[in-house]
Design a protein around this nucleic acid. Sequence first.
DNA 1: TTCCATATAGAACATAGTGTTCTGAATGCT
DNA 2: AGCATTCAGAACACTATGTTCTATATGGAA
Lengths: 194, 194
Amino acid sequence: MKKKTSPDRQVQRTRQFLLNALVDLTVEKGYEKVTVQDIIDRANVGRTTFYSHFQDKEDLLLSGFEKLRDVFDDLRSESPLEKSLWDFSLALFQHAEQQRQPFKALFGKQARGVVFSLFQKTLVAYLKERLQASFPKKKQPLLPLDVFVQYLFSVFSGLLTWWLDNDISYSAEQMNEYYRKLTEPAIQKLLPGV
Amino acid sequence: MKKKTSPDRQVQRTRQFLLNALVDLTVEKGYEKVTVQDIIDRANVGRTTFYSHFQDKEDLLLSGFEKLRDVFDDLRSESPLEKSLWDFSLALFQHAEQQRQPFKALFGKQARGVVFSLFQKTLVAYLKERLQASFPKKKQPLLPLDVFVQYLFSVFSGLLTWWLDNDISYSAEQMNEYYRKLTEPAIQKLLPGV
DNA sequence: TTCCATATAGAACATAGTGTTCTGAATGCT
DNA sequence: AGCATTCAGAACACTATGTTCTATATGGAA
């Protein structure tokens, strides 16, 4: 006979309940207006329990962000350099498609700010690393690499949030195609050889 | 003999003090962490006074945003259609350059969210209006116009915030040149005729 | 089963911030 | 000199946070 819950499972279950509650409430009324009391009421969890798991509301929100690191780790190890500029966007669009609600809570109109900075930091680092690795050393770029990295990040995150805020009327593959169509001309023109 | 202050001037002065205090404090510690008490202490203004002028902290922040409407109004009336996609960005970059501190408070890492949505709404509406007016009716766009509008907005706002967060090491004209270089290839390829 | 460590619920509390209301003082205009 | 406007500051009710306490439930091991 299998036990229903072990202590570990109970913890995981509680944390998941809390995250789900935060995500739901954020979609409903916006991250700012969600109170800890709302969260624990919705999750049927005691106040003590909440603060034994998370430092505060933001800490809980960030815990929902951890899986994204795996996506980037996979990309670093698996995606060949010459494809990495397109693979990352497809992977993230698909990731967002699979987990619509959390992503909407994290990136939608309601909750920019906290997570966004972290996401930006991660993605910008990834893009810069990839561009530096693949850009031919001899050539002089037509504009600062940092500017170009910011450009790629902006286009991607802009399309992502637009997509999420408009209830995902296109597929992840379609969005990635748009991302590619939009950025490819500038890449070819400004970073020849990449 | 000229009077030092009239009632109207006093009001304007008080409002300006409060806005300056909010901007300074936001740069110092981030918008979220600035309290009304901080603001009125810094501005040497009574609590009553604050709430007689503004509904809350956000209302005060938005009051610093009003001048931007004039910029868009000017663009609509003065900028010819075929130039409007480049003129808007230069005008805004210059506007941001003139008022670095308020812009940093409004768009910098510290305070995305509140104002950003309003700014996005305004600029997206402007871009869509201009693109629809200038796009040849007969041609079928290679991707949805909304996606392209989002693209233009994302690139611009991304460059703007990057610029502000990095203490404006380039000139407004230089940034506008980057914006143009980055977006022109996609425009030529995806919206031929615009 | 019995026992123990761990998770949990919930109440009470101190602290901090918000927005309102009241009183009284200062300021500028006529 | 008198009046209306604008201000400062205190007191207050309210909401939310994060901590501490006590007590209860639960799963795993003897």
